[in-house]
Design a protein around this nucleic acid. Sequence first.
RNA 1: GGCUCGUUGGUGAAGCGGCUUAACACAGCGCCCUUUCACGGCGUCACUCACGGGUUCGAAUCCCGUACGAGUCACCA
Length: 484
Amino acid sequence: MSKVRTRFAPSPTGYMHIGNLRTALYEYLVAKKNEDGVFILRIEDTDQQRLVEGSVDVIYDTLKQCNLLHDEGPDVGGNYGSYIQSERMKSGIYKQYAEQLIELDGAHYCFCSEQEIDEQRQIAASKAISFKYDDPCKRLSKEEINSRIQSSEKHVIRQNIPNEGTTSFDDEVYGTISFENSTLDEAILLKSDGFPTYNFANIIDDHSMEITHVVRGNEYLSSTPKYNLVYSSFGWDIPTYVHCPPVMKDEQHKLSKRNGDASFQDLVAKGYLPQAIVNYIALLGWAPETDQEIYTLDELKQAFNVKRINTSGAIFDIDKLTWMNGIYLRNMDIDTFHALVLPYIKGAVTSDFDTKEIAEILHQRTSTLTEIHDMLDFFDVYPSFENDLYINKKMKTSPEIALPSLVAAKQLLANIDNYTKEVIHEQMMELVKTMGIKNGQLLFPVRIALTGKAFTPGGAIEIAYILGKEEAIRRLDIAINNLN
RNA sequence: GGCUCGUUGGUGAAGCGGCUUAACACAGCGCCCUUUCACGGCGUCACUCACGGGUUCGAAUCCCGUACGAGUCACCA
């Protein structure tokens, strides 16, 4: 068996669509499931109008961040270059192939004007009858064709499709699919400007790059038979097709840039880790054989199997991604986590607190990096708050119960010389005993008094420690005053 | 409109004719743990697989039809 070669062929639009990224992931996995599989990056930039400055870098960056490293591509080279479609176009290979296809009876010259066909199409549409263009140019004599080309009359090259018979193919995901040839349009292969249409360029490029597996969205299902007719006219091997269901925003709509849906970059900016995103989208439309949900890229290579890709669209669920991101964060060792969140801590806290300690309390409670800011804002600014924050039914606390607790806690902290978490903890517990109250009746009010917030990333003891003796006492003082 | 594809809970999904009184996970809800929230633990959440027929001793699983949804029918990619 020949080497598996797959290709990711995005258009540089400056936006890495989640569905596209998933396609890239699947292409990568299909290739890398085998020791010697090759994953290729090809830039499809033939639409110069849509070209966006710096957007090729977005593609490189995304693949790099996700660790979907390509073996061949514009930036890493390879023996099948160029890997940029606009470059390939300059060589004129598409025109050569299109002309060759005419020789092989797989295509013909067409001199019909666009407007002419359009009008016919309109008429058909108004009568609500299906339209299929019956191209008179197919019946032109060789001499006439030659003379019209000679006189440089505008023309395109259009593919030939038999009137009868069916074209069917096997898709790895959808199974066998058949089309009546009579329902297929004779698509333009080479435009009047001499450039190939997207579909034709694709066929030629995939063949010249010896692509063995084509992974793409299922919107290509309908044009696949036309692709195959071209392949057979050339006598080329048809690649293995893996058509994927769409990634949806909701039941009716695909995730799309137009709808302002999140791109890979948006998600990263929102505090999601690339590895978590990759892990999550792997499971969007594909299911492993086991219950395992958390996968490293290497584990995915092992577990992945195109046969288990689903046939129906999958709705993108940010809640599940958030959960998964939290798992990744919690599974990090504390040093890695600290390094990762340091910029976020610094962004929220400018005072001189121990970031390592802060990271410690964040570690088990963070699910996205961007929520860190709001979790920590009380460190810099001690907010004013209503006294009924002290009311908590479960803890059996109220402003009345809080007051003596805070007074005692302040005294306690003031008397500690060796100000460590352990000592604070020990003494607090003792205080609870001597006061004859519940843990929560002391610690809950203290935490509120220290932070002014109902929810905080840590408990009273940790926060009292991080704030430092002086600041903790200052805050307790203010809180006590407000209760009087 | 023609053609193609799809339809299991709020979401991702398992299921491949009997082991399913439909896994697992997210979200939700409830409880427990706990100095809050979270983490963690436990429980609950589809008498039913879009609907209607058929095949079969037996169907979410096979067949047909209907409905709904999506894709595609460009000298766009």
